[in-house]
């Protein structure tokens, strides 16, 4: 059984990332379940998806302390998911800050020490800078696929399996861009 959490901000493509992972896992013969929260996501709120795959999956939600991977598309969103980690979990974070509304309006401050705190407190972690990859892919909207590329280094699926899932899940005219984004993400992790 693998437990994977994607966390980000509305509009970052968290749900599509989880859908592609589910497709890969199902086509590899696993049972798979996922849970997501809709509704307010479009208004810039926090968004997360829990994905679980294995021989037989019951709960669509991951129990706290049992995530194998948390993939955060934003630094603050990583902080919100720490209770799902245990000593052997891995935290993967896109090194980006997006100010939430209370920070934009000056009511609160974006904590400036969370990256160093996470690095010091979490055993297995990978902080990636996706700027160059997004520039090369040509759009910031490719962030979700870049992050999947990063994650793919740690999961059991082949590049061919990922490629097939991406091809089947994104619009035809965006396939090449997304395959490039995936490759760039995959190389990004290997570079660390």
């Amino acid at each position: 059984m693998k437990n994977i959490i994607f966390a980000g901000v509305g509009g970052q493509g968290v749900i599509l990332a989880s859908k592609i992972l589910m497709e890969v896992a199902m086509n590899a013969g696993y049972d798979v379940k996922e849970s997501e929260v809709h509704g307010m996501a479009q208004r810039g709120g926090s968004v997360d998806c829990h994905v679980r795959y294995g021989e037989k999956v019951y709960s669509p939600l991951i129990e706290k302390g049992t995530a194998d991977y948390v993939i955060a598309f934003e630094l603050l969103e990583a902080m919100r998911k720490l209770e799902y980690l245990n000593g052997s979990s891995m935290l993967i974070v896109n090194n980006e800050k997006i100010d939430p509304a209370p920070v934009q309006t000056g009511l609160e401050k974006y904590p400036d020490d969370i990256e160093s705190w996470m690095k010091a407190s979490i055993g297995r972690h990978l902080f990636v800078d996706t700027e160059a990859a997004l520039k090369e892919a040509g759009t910031r909207r490719a962030l979700n696929i870049v992050m999947l590329g990063v994650l793919s280094n740690y999961l059991e699926f082949t590049v061919d399996q990922w490629t097939a899932a991406i091809r089947s899940m994104v619009k035809e005219k965006f396939i090449d861009m997304n395959l490039l984004a995936f490759k760039l993400g995959r190389e990004l992790a290997a570079a660390h």
């Binding site: 901000v9 509305g10 479009q42 709120g45 926090s46 129990e63 603050l76 939430p100 509304a101 904590p111």
Partner: peptide
């Protein structure tokens, strides 16, 4: 799990003590 098995969640991660700003939905 806690109600039926009296199991506390594993907490391997130390607690971050400062405030984490919430990200409520907002008007665009």
């Amino acid at each position: 799990d806690m109600a039926l098995n009296k199991k506390k969640p594993l907490s391997a991660i130390p607690t971050y003590t400062s405030k984490i700003p919430a990200r409520p939905p907002a008007l665009c």
